[in-house]
Computed example of a mutant assay.
Amino acid sequence: MIELDDIDRSILRALQSDATQGAGALGKRFGLSQPATWRRIKRLESAGVIAGRRILLDREALGFGVTVFLGVKLATKGRVSLEDFERAVTAIPEVQAVHHVLGLYDYRLRVVARDLADFERVLRRRIMTLPGVGNVEANVILTEERLAGPIG
């Protein structure tokens, strides 16, 4: 595990809120030179603390007004059925995240759709036809708050 100082944590918080910020702007903000800030960012990337940088898309602006958490319980279990299910479900573009979990369901999926009718189409034609699918439970997201993850 890498040791983080207060400046490292500040840089991580700043990048977490806006990953497009350059080392020069971050350096000015935290009293460092551009090269010193760049070295810190590279060290954090090399250590695996920064796993990547992503652009967050506004699903509603793109026409996807419904997000659903879907619990999926497989009818049959075993190494082959898990791998088959995972391979098939990750090929569905509306499925944004796949989590293999412990509990009542085997998987939790984050699914986006244009509206409820579109979600029903995705559920019936794509998800329910996947290998090994048994029971499903859908939870439609009404509101969502983005919380920043913990930084040491």
Rank of each mutant, 00 (worst) to 15 (best):
P93W: 05
I7T: 10
M128G: 02
D18K: 11
L116V: 06
L147I: 15
S81V: 15
D115Q: 08
V140T: 14
R87M: 05
V111Y: 06
L74D: 08
L130W: 07
L26C: 03
A113I: 08
G52W: 15
D8T: 01
G65H: 09
G31N: 01
G65I: 00
A47Y: 13
L62N: 05
V101I: 12
E45D: 11
D8V: 02
F85Y: 11
E45W: 12
L12I: 11
S10V: 00
A75V: 06
A148S: 12
V140A: 12
A14H: 05
F85C: 09
H100E: 01
P150G: 14
A47Q: 13
A23I: 02
D84F: 04
D18Y: 13
F64L: 12
G134C: 05
T20Y: 08
L147V: 15
A138C: 10
L57D: 07
K42P: 06
E86Q: 10
D118M: 04
A75T: 07
F30G: 02
Q21T: 08
D84C: 07
R121N: 10
E137P: 00
R87P: 00
D8A: 07
L26I: 09
Y107M: 03
G78Q: 12
A75R: 13
G134I: 01
L26Y: 02
L4I: 03
P131M: 05
F119K: 06
G24Y: 03
V98C: 03
N135I: 03
T90N: 13
R79F: 14
S46T: 14
T67S: 09
M1L: 06
L102Y: 10
R39E: 15
V89Y: 03
L57T: 08
L147F: 14
L15F: 05
R29L: 07
I11L: 11
F119L: 09
I127D: 09
L74C: 07
T129Y: 00
L32H: 01
R108Y: 11
H99I: 02
L130S: 12
V89W: 04
G71Q: 03
A47R: 13
L70D: 06
L109V: 06
G65M: 06
T90E: 11
G63W: 01
G63V: 02
I11R: 04
L57Q: 13
N135H: 11
R43L: 12
A61H: 10
V136F: 08
I50A: 10
R9Q: 07
S10I: 00
G103A: 04
V122P: 09
L4K: 01
E86R: 08
R146K: 13
L32M: 09
A51T: 14
N135G: 04
